[in-house]
Nucleic acid binder design. Structure first.
Lengths: 195, 195
DNA sequence: CTCATTTTGGAACAATTGTTCTGAAATGAG
DNA sequence: CTCATTTCAGAACAATTGTTCCAAAATGAG
């Protein structure tokens, strides 16, 4: 056998994720990544492949962390679908507002920067969008059945509506907007669907 | 006197705008710009300054074209504030959906890519956001007074809500989404504010 | 036509890009 | 300990980046 790695693989990947998250793909250089990850060029290429592969791995990591965060918000919100949905949306907004670097959402950033330039990123973003939409739709339908939401809208359409809104929040939040107006805007978005 | 320019200054700028719009700032090279604009390097630097200045000029051009488009949509919609608002929103969506390159909105792209990396772009985006918000707020307030919108929401908050939604539409539209669901999602967004 | 002035194309620039290579150091099973 | 195997640091690579420079061509007022 041979020597074992001197660094934690996912720990270094997380550091790369934060650089990509903040600067995007093209503005991030391998130099940036090497210094941020604290490993050598050789180790980087050996472990993660080239820049694009590292970026995709970082994006996957972001997605999984994001999903876990959503699950936690749901779990902490009792049985009401509306309360669960509201918790997910508010958690997303509050985390975005709390970020001192105002990086927004890495997935939305990736979509804006790369969706039409890179087929892999586009497909990954589409997959994420479908998953989030399905998640919203499930909660909306359950909320309608429990009488928390108006029965006269299509849950699929409303899910698209919320998906668009969340993406917008995350882009606009990169310009240091009024936090309270953002909170009230989100409340208004959900109110339009409520009884 | 001396020789006169062999190209139209705003025509070439418009070509640069389309390149930046599609590829973003960092992924666009001066080589790309020189070939797209059909002028020489020397003419480019002489007329527009460096890459950053050219980008800012292209962004300003986009903004002015966008404003003119909104004004046209309002002018063609009679006296109803709600109809005017709907026309603006729908025009934006339809134009985004119709773009074969799916480039979204250049302002949203600029915000996503550069707002936290470049102070100038951030301020410009903030200025645009304020202007659009004020425009929405004016229409919403007028619509409330005419009884077209519910009186129980704050026009400023609703303007923020719509602003976020429009930004989201434009990001999501870069992933080739279902056009009809996008249309119905927009209708639902306005419906939540309506009587 | 003259000539000062400007534009223009392309060569040239230094700096940075993403990636590969090399050789030495470190490791752990036998 | 042995040694095949892997990690690692940094030099080196070719390509591309944004920008400047220069000489030649073009222009229009006098």
């Amino acid at each position: 056998m041979a020597r074992s790695k001197a660094f934690d693989e996912v720990e270094a990947l997380e550091k790369a994720m934060h650089v990509f998250w903040k600067k995007g793909y093209h503005a991030t250089s391998m130099e940036d990544l090497v210094t941020a990850m604290g490993i050598s060029r050789a180790s980087l290429y050996d472990t993660y492949g080239d820049k694009k592969q590292l970026y995709m791995a970082a994006l996957k990591l972001f997605q999984s962390q994001s999903q876990r965060q959503n699950s936690r918000a749901v779990a902490a919100s009792g049985n009401s679908p509306k309360a669960q949905l509201m918790a997910v949306l508010q958690t997303n907004l509050e985390e975005t507002l709390a970020d001192p670097d105002q990086r927004g959402c890495m997935m939305a950033n990736a979509t804006a920067e790369l969706a039409i330039l890179d087929e892999d990123v586009c497909q990954f973003a589409q997959g994420n969008i479908c998953a989030v939409e399905a998640f919203f739709e499930k909660l909306l339908r359950a909320g309608q059945e429990q009488g928390e939401f108006r029965p006269d809208f299509d849950p699929g359409v409303a899910a698209t509506f919320l998906l668009n809104y969340v993406h917008g929040m995350r882009i606009v939040s990169k310009t240091k907007p009024d936090a309270d107006k953002m909170r009230m805007g989100l409340a208004l978005a959900v109110q339009g669907l409520s009884i």
